[in-house]
Each structure stands twice: as structure tokens, then as C-alpha cells.
Design a protein around this nucleic acid. Structure first.
Lengths: 349, 349
DNA sequence: GACCCGATTGTTATCGATATCGTAAGCGAT
DNA sequence: ATCGCTTACGATATCGATAACAATCGGGTC
């Protein structure tokens, strides 16, 4: 199947400008601008002429020029640890869903679970003069924090409940969620609960979950310290499989494992299958995040669910409100929205 | 844990401009511009003064203004069907990896497997005057195609081998890959092979895979037409589970199922577990895409692998080359790069 | 008829950077 | 001393839109 070339490839001509459209329609550029934004008052008659000219020239508005004069770029910067994680891509999706109707465009960046990288990204993003910024974390390098604070745009921190928020927050306490999960396992009769997570502190949400686990086992009077740290965040399915082996070998009496995410939990369960360890008979396994794989695996995986898409939507809404305030010269009041989480018990525990 | 407010929240002041930096450093704006791009000739002495001023004022370059005069925005528009699919997010990641070093920023959009939505997105993206655009498809609405052709920027189509490329291509034939998979199953002895895919033609890659399946069973003289269409693309794990039940009930003698993606394959396998149908004893199941879950599931899933991240990297490189050509007033020659795929046999077949 | 009003359109200045060209200084060669 | 060349930097025009204000027009009010 040899691809054929189109016989005529149009010469890459410089795109038309608004002035050219205006000339063709016999009006001024300003009128064209108004007609295209459909906010200004333009008579039906002229609007038709203008749209005709737009069509004939194949004109598309140049927002990068408009941004300069209107001082609003229509960009919303969004920083997520990784896009290859359905929790965060769901959040990104929720954000898009809300803002795209308002003519806003998301500028997405990956921090790789790394605060240094986040700092660089913040700087790079500010370079594009976004109208607002949404970050997926409550902790930042001092410089990143300073940049965010002095950017003069609304900031939304998500997926966390920072002690000292920069501006707006849409999140939940990862530690509390993890703690609730351990308590639930306790109620079910498990007394020897381990934790599987990443090896570095880069992933602050992961660290918080571990913290919640530790608090819970302490307050329940269970054996403590049964944690396996394995690999750099984000810990993969494969790593979860390796970690569960370490956990069981190191503490053979462990009867339940809380994993930092569903992905590692899934890997752990599959490894148990392979080794003939019954789940939850030999060992119960729980995850975090309610990924699709947890609902669909066999056994289905006990997990903590948060509505990721909704975090995005809410963050988007908070940002839109703030932008609206800014536009009307009101000083937006910082807000904190706590989204609910829920422990979902399934067959794996 | 009540969040506390910072005691002093800096007044959201308008960010500093280059002219202010220039004034503070006692030079002209032009010199500041040169110092910050580090390409122009600026003495060490002045550069130090300028960087000091930049630091004191917390100045960050405004690329949105720079874009207007330099006529290069530094944006690369990237359209993917869905970001919540690790294949495409890997590709997006590969693109970022290559372009971010060049000061380019990705503008990501989701088409939702919908050509109409793609058309709208193309228009919206062109509004930002990207320097280049990468799309994840070889088929487009006529209007979208016209816009892409006349945008005057390099275009890269990926994940497909279009019959009539717009400009550059980095992809593979989904039909050939699917066909190869069926042949492999045939070699293993399977003679009654079904196909599970989405119900609409929106997902052109999915449709191509089905086409490859059909061709293969025809040329092998196997029973044809054993396809289940279930749900709108992207077909989920859950839907894969439901589809396999339909398939087996409708053609009880089916001994193997090819799924349009690993996700549906995984769902199908888990459903088989639940029903006590041995995989591959009762029925063999294969997927497409080599998602992490396929490597980690039990049994591991036979699939077709393509290096998604590499598709992104190559697409990024092709684009950079083209941009380089444009910048040096060379007319870039359209290119087609075919990336390899590979059938990976695992325990599920 | 004077005046005001709303609807529609045009004029001009401007957003914040960079392209382009110009200028001045320094330096070696003739 | 002059020329040519390089290096460092400034002045000005410009990119393509929009903000802000001005102008025009028809009609209604008093």
C-alpha cells in the first residue's frame, strides 16, 4: 500500500489577516472583530458580508494577537504529575470539559512527580501568560510558590489539602483517606496490615497515604512499620507484584496489604495468583484511586474512590468564578472545596 | 485540619515588562531580549546586570507578545482521540520529550474519536497559530483536511498510514497488524476466531483492525462474520467482559477472540474467570496495544505491540526537521515513516 | 426644531515583545 | 591615518488583534 502524494499541494501561504477580511467585506477591522466575537453589536447585514469574506479567505482568528491587546490569553495552565495515570487524565478531562465552553484552552504540563520539574514548568507556563493555573499538589519549592503567588492570576491547588494554601483549593486529605481504609480493614478482622508504596518522597500524595496508614495502625495498636518501599513513583503494576513478594517474605504473618495505588494493588494480586496465594484468603489487598482495572479485575479490588473527573470540573469552576471576579474588578476570595472520598469494599479484602 | 490563610497575600500586581527590566538595568529593551534568548551577542557585564534586574523584579518573559513579532508561537498542536488511553498519552509524552528541549509547548486536544470534534479542534488550534500540528489519524472531514492543508504549517499524521497523506506521516497499518495477529492464532491451531470491537465507525483505527481481521479469516478460509460490536469507542474493560459473553453465546464453537484493544481483552478475560471459562483452554483471547495491564494480568495477554512513545518521539523529530526547513526557507519534503509492530504471544492464547 | 438615545460603525492608540537596521567603539592591517 | 570588520547595543517599525472613544444616523420626546 504505497501512499500516493496529492497532485496539488497548496503553497503554504501566509494566513489571511483580519484587515484583509475587513477590506473584502468593505468594513473596518474593528467591525470584523466584533462580528467574530459575536458579543459586539453588528447588524445582520454586515455580519453576513463579513462571514462570507471569512469563508472565502479561509480566515481563522488569531488569538495570539488578540491576547496581547485584550490582556487575556485564554490559557489555563494545568500541571499534573503524570498524564499516563487515569486519575490525573480524568482530572484534566474534567477541567477541559468546563473551560472549553468558555473559549479557554488548557496548557498541560507533566511534573513527573518532581517538585524541581514543577518549578521549571511553572516558570515555563507563566511565560505564556495563562489567565489561571491549576496544580496537582499542595507542596512546592519555595521559588515555585513565590512565582505562583506573584503571578497575579488565580491559582487552584488540587488533589491535596495544603496546610497553607496559595489561593484556591479543591481536594481531599490523602492521609485521612488512607487511614479510613485501614480502619475498614481492621473492622473486617485484619490485624496484621502492611503498606506498599514508592521508595522516594517525590510523590507527596503517596507519602501522605503512607502517613495515614502509619497513624491508623498506631492508633489501632497493630504491629507497625510493615511497609515496603519499592521503585520510584509512580509505582507500576510490575513493581506492585514484586513488592508483595517482599512484604510476605519479610513478615510472613501479614494478612492484608494496603497499596499506594490500584495499579500496584493489581500487580500484587496477579503475582499472588501466579504464586497460588489466595486473595483475600492468604492475604487481602487494597488499592487507592478506583481505577477501571479495579472494578474489572478478578477479584475486584477494594479501594478508595474519589471522583477524579469531578475534581477537575470543580477546579475548573472555581477558576472560572475567580476569572469572572477578576474581570469585574472584584477581588476573589480564596476558597477551599473538600471533595469526598469513599472506601469501596470489594472481593479482594 | 483547618487550612490557615497566609498572613500577607501579595497584591496581584501586573507582572513586570521587559521595558521595566531594561530601565532597571540601564539598557534598552532590545538588549534585555537578547540577553534572555542567550543567542544574541551581549557582554557578560550587561548580561549580569540584566539577570540581576530580572531577578529583582521577578520578571518572566512574555512569549505571547514575542510570538506576535517573531511570527513563531512555539506551540505544537497535538490532537489525540483520548488522553485517557495510555497508548495515546505515551505518544503525547514522546512528543513532549522531543519538543520541550526546543522551547516548544504542546497544545493538547481530545477528539473523543469523533471526526466532527476533530474538525472543531483543528479550527480552535489554528486560532493559536501553532508552528506545527500532529494529529492521530489519517482520516478527516473534508473541511478539517482543507484547514490542515492550507494552514501553512507542517502537519504530521500518526497512528495510521493514510492513502493520501496531507504532509508527513509516522504510523503503521492497523489492518496489517490485526491481520498478522489472526494469522498467528491460526498457526497456533485456532480455527474459529471471533472479533470484539466498538459499535460505531468513529474509531477509524478500530475499524481498520476489524478490516484486517476480516481479510485474514477470509484468506485463511475460516468461518467469517463472527464479530461482536459493543458500545461506543473506546470500548471499555467492562464492555469487553459483556462482549465476550455475547460472542460465546452466539457462536458456542468459537475458540479464540481478537479484541480491538487490550482493555477489552482484559475485561473479557476477567469475565471468563468469573464464569469459569478457562483462558486459553475454553477460549483464547488476544488484544491490541500492549498496555501495562496485558503484561501484568494473569494470564498475560497476547497482543500487538507498537512503541507508542516512539511514535511520539519520531513525530516530534519529523516536525522539528520540518520547522527547521521552514526557518531556513527550504521547502520541506513530505515524508512517511513506517514504525514496526510486533505480535507478542503470551499465555492468553 | 432642539435634544437625547440607542444602534452601528470607524479611528486611533496600544498591548509587549522582536526584526531590522543603524551606530559607536575597538582593533588589527595596511 | 584610513579602512574594514567585528562586537555590543539602541531606535524604530511592526506583528494582528482589541480597548476606548468618537462619529454617524435614524427615530422618538418634549
Amino acid at each position: 500500500m504505497k501512499p500516493t502524494r496529492p497532485t496539488t499541494r497548496p503553497i503554504p501561504k501566509r494566513p489571511a489577516t483580519m484587515a484583509e477580511v475587513a477590506a473584502r467585506a468593505g468594513v473596518s477591522a474593528m467591525t470584523v472583530s466584533r462580528a467574530l466575537k459575536s458579543d459586539g453589536a453588528v447588524s445582520e447585514e454586515t455580519r453576513r458580508k463579513i462571514l462570507a469574506a471569512v469563508d472565502e479567505l479561509g480566515y481563522v482568528l488569531d488569538l495570539s494577537a488578540g491576547a496581547l491587546s485584550s490582556k487575556r490569553t485564554g490559557f489555563v495552565a494545568v500541571l499534573v504529575p503524570s498524564i499516563n495515570n487515569s486519575n490525573f487524565s480524568d482530572t484534566a478531562r474534567g477541567i477541559t470539559e468546563i473551560i472549553e465552553g468558555q473559549g479557554l484552552q488548557m496548557l498541560l504540563g507533566y511534573t513527573d512527580y518532581d517538585m524541581e520539574k514543577e518549578e521549571q514548568l511553572v516558570q515555563a507556563m507563566l511565560t505564556r501568560r495563562p489567565d489561571g493555573i491549576i496544580v496537582t499538589d499542595g507542596r512546592h519549592t519555595p521559588k515555585a510558590r513565590r512565582m505562583l503567588e506573584s503571578a497575579g492570576i488565580p491559582v487552584v491547588e488540587t488533589w491535596d489539602l495544603p496546610d497553607d494554601p496559595i489561593d484556591h483549593v479543591v481536594g481531599f486529605s490523602n492521609a485521612e483517606a488512607s487511614r479510613a481504609l485501614v480502619h475498614r480493614l481492621y473492622q473486617k478482622g485484619y490485624r496484621n496490615i502492611g503498606f506498599i508504596g514508592g521508595a522516594s518522597r517525590r510523590d507527596t500524595r503517596g507519602a501522605d497515604r503512607r502517613l495515614g496508614y502509619t497513624r491508623a495502625v498506631e492508633e489501632l495498636g497493630l504491629p507497625v512499620g510493615r511497609t515496603i518501599s519499592f521503585g520510584n513513583p509512580p509505582i507500576s503494576m510490575e513493581q506492585g507484584g514484586q513488592a508483595i513478594v517482599h512484604l510476605v517474605q519479610q513478615w510472613p504473618d501479614v494478612d492484608a496489604a494496603v497499596c499506594v495505588s490500584d495499579l500496584s494493588a493489581f500487580g500484587a494480586i496477579m503475582e499472588c495468583h501466579r504464586r497460588g496465594w489466595a486473595v483475600p484468603g492468604r492475604i487481602a489487598i487494597a488499592g487507592f484511586g478506583d481505577f477501571e482495572v479495579s472494578r474489572c479485575a478478578w477479584p475486584r479490588i477494594t479501594t478508595v474512590t474519589v471522583d477524579c473527573r469531578n475534581i477537575g470540573r470543580e477546579a475548573g469552576r472555581v477558576l472560572l468564578n475567580a476569572l469572572d471576579d477578576v474581570q469585574h474588578d472584584r477581588t476573589p476570595a480564596p476558597s477551599t472545596l473538600i471533595v469526598p472520598f469513599e472506601v469501596i469494599e470489594r472481593e479482594s479484602t
